[in-house]
Amino acid sequence: MASFLSLTAVSAPPTPPAFSVRTPFYKSPPTLHFKSHRFAVSCSFAGAGVSDDPRLTPIDVAADVKSERIVVLGGSGLVGSAICKAAVSRGIEVISLNRSGRPTYPGTWVDQVTWIPGDVFYVNWDEVLPGATAVVSTLGGFGSEEQMRKINGEANVVAVNAAKEYGIPKFILISVHDYNLPSFLLSSGYFTGKRKAESEVLSKYPGSGIVLRPGFIYGKRRVDGFELPLDLVGEPAEKILKAVENFTKPLSSLPASDLLLAPPVSIDDVALAAINGLKDDDFFGIFTIDQIKEAAENVRV
């Protein structure tokens, strides 16, 4: 905020200095319409010996403060719901697009998310994307080869291109660790779909696209009304592998070794790493398991 200054009188007043008011600068595409809060800065200068100079008349400055608004694709799933919850807790406006719409499980954060039922292949993006500052995609799944290529790859490609067309500044993709698998196993529809989506993100968003590659993600997962405590397996495994990593590192170059040696990642770490990507403009590119955990710690601190 600008302060009020008073200039004391002098016998021969010098040429009045030029005053300027610095307003915050926010990067945002000119085509977007953000919810904003306006405030005015009024500056006036008075004092004996100061003549009426047009340069010293009161200055009114109005600045737009852009609020964060993200779109989470697949927000009712394990990863998507954790990201929605973490974002809401930090005052970020959240819209979730998923096929089932609003989830049935409890949580105060659920009421703070705008739930839109829909499919990325048929949705009217005009109802979803305008005003968003980032898109976070958790789309993915298993099935036949064709189904996996479609949901892991094509669906994300459609979303990336829609986000780019609407001028969304950032795109965050939740992908998967490759587990050091041999190439013939990485040719499955699951991995080829994920890598196709990654390429699209990094191509369309070379300076702001984020690809997170976690391994096994643990947390409390809800399936058909039941809660699966995956953390009872994942958390101990993460601690054990962390404790013995100095002994297992020589084995990391062996094909498929990460199926046993890649540490699990907590759902909270994945969600916080995504939040870090929303906050840090220098955070872009592909991030490994260890880098995901490091990014999560940055947010916790």
Results as ranks from 00 to 15, higher is better:
V94S: 00
Y105G: 06
K164Q: 11
G91Y: 06
R99N: 08
D290E: 14
L230I: 11
V160G: 00
P255A: 12
S144E: 09
V233M: 13
Y179P: 00
K35P: 14
F142I: 13
S203N: 09
F45Y: 15
H177R: 08
E235R: 14
I116S: 00
D64P: 02
L254D: 11
P13S: 13
L230G: 14
E294G: 04
A296P: 05
P264Y: 11
A2R: 05
P54L: 12
V136M: 10
P236M: 11
T248N: 10
A155G: 10
L185G: 04
I92N: 00
P250M: 09
T31N: 14
S253H: 08
G107C: 06
A87N: 01
P16T: 09
A237C: 11
A159L: 02
V158S: 09
E235S: 09
E93R: 09
T138S: 08
I92W: 00
S67Q: 13
F25M: 09
A48E: 11
V41K: 12
R69S: 08
V211H: 05
I95N: 00
A87F: 04
I275Q: 01
S257R: 06
A18E: 14
D269P: 02
V113D: 00
P206R: 02
T57P: 09
G153W: 07
P17G: 07
S20H: 15
S100W: 03
T138C: 13
V113T: 01
A163G: 05
Q112Y: 06
P106W: 05
S36D: 14
R221M: 06
V157A: 05
G74Y: 02
V110F: 00
I70S: 01
